[in-house]
Design a protein around this nucleic acid. Structure first.
Lengths: 238, 238
DNA sequence: GTCTATAACCGGATAGAC
DNA sequence: GTCTATCCGGTTATAGAC
């Protein structure tokens, strides 16, 4: 993959780059993606148009930079909770809420981000090879969320659960992107309820009635992963 | 909403319109959404640029037209199966497979379509107000899928199940869009397995152990819908 | 009502002189 | 690094043909 963090060869350059990014995010938030023209971004940041293109090879690359920063903020925001809380539902809910909280300032513009990330051809797609590291990071993060709880997870499920939980969070974020309710109550409500359901489901996963479902689901994941290996190693599952 | 099927007042006009659409789909498939310029579409179709805009008010509307046609083809393809088969799993699987079959020719271009449709600001988003009619059509279609089967569905679940199944299919399609395996085997496998799981889950939904989950899920949907109604009142303003 | 030709506007992106 | 000119493509407008 191409490095997505291009010029920043001097401290001054890094500062300028950060300034442009910050300005762009402001303008995106104020006027939306289309409304925030590169000319306007450059002008407000006090640099020339071509200089903006010097640091960000395209308008899209500005979004990519934002994406990475947001991800790191989420991780940081979860630290204290995960150190303190032992209840799985609370941990799960805390992580989801932290995701929503940290990204909220950029909700309006996140639709655009998603639009880009949704394209399977795009390196921003969460299923793309380029996103492999991030995906890996996310699943091992969720492994920690589970491992640090007092909930006992059936042996066979343990390996797959982090990936499934990542998918679950992706689903919440997808909903959040489309949510225009004030204060995003609908998404928070969705998170509350589903975190409860998911946590209960995990706790009950070992029950005989659910065992066929658990087995079937795990088998499915295993098979899909098998297919992936057969391909050119460039696919969705970790 | 504005009518999205503008001029076609004579048979000749309809023919020209169809020609432009067909040409556009070819070009989208060949060159992607961005690569297929309106100018190129018009040229290959043998009409003037302004004439293309006469039949399709925007480039986006071309995609929308495709979307509708694809939807109708899917419905048609399911007819025979639904008339014959009574087993829920088979019906469900047949419907999903028909969806995959009918859309396969446009897989490459569907990624592009999705990229547009994924933007909540876009009227192409399946969750947008503009898509309301299609969404409605889809859910009542799934209602028929369930009603025509011999599986008994708990009273409270019956009303929501069609919508849930539509969401389920959307999930399969999302996976399909990202699936680059030969012959799309991975998606077909996913469909086979999940159709089984989903059908079993529906059949067991009335079981005491699962009842809390069923209730929680239905309550969640009801609440979310409640929120939506409160919004829509406000949202209809310009 | 179908269709052409032509010009123009706007904003993203690039090239090249300075 | 910056500025200017320029390209490109979506979109609109006009004026008029059959």
């Amino acid at each position: 993959m191409i490095d997505s963090q291009p010029p920043a060869k001097t401290p001054k350059g890094a500062q300028t780059r950060a300034l442009i990014l910050r300005t762009a995010l402001d303008l995106f938030t104020e006027r939306g993606y289309e409304g925030a023209t590169m000319r306007a971004i450059a002008e407000r940041a006090g640099v020339s148009l071509s200089h903006a293109y010097y640091y960000f090879r395209s308008k899209e690359e500005l979004i990519q930079a934002f994406y990475l920063r947001s991800h790191e903020e989420h991780m940081a925001a979860c630290g204290p909770l995960l150190a303190r809380e032992r209840d799985l539902e609370a941990r799960l809910l805390g992580v989801i809420r932290a995701k929503l909280d940290t990204t909220e300032p950029y909700h309006r513009f996140s639709g655009v981000l998603f639009r880009t990330a949704a394209d399977p051809q795009s390196p921003l797609s969460p299923f793309s090879a380029a996103s492999n590291p991030v995906r890996q990071q996310c699943t091992s993060f969720f492994a920690e969320v589970v491992a640090g709880s007092r909930t006992r997870v059936p042996e066979d499920l343990r390996a797959e659960l982090p990936y499934l939980l990542w998918l679950y969070m992706m689903g919440i974020v997808l909903f959040w992107i489309h949510d225009r309710s004030p204060g995003r109550i609908r998404t928070y409500r969705l998170a509350d309820r589903t975190a409860h359901i998911v946590a209960r489901l995990i706790a009950l996963a070992g029950h005989p009635l659910l065992t066929p479902f658990r087995k079937a689901t795990l088998q499915l994941l295993a098979d899909l992963r098998e297919d992936t290996r057969a391909e050119d190693a460039v696919q969705s599952l970790p």
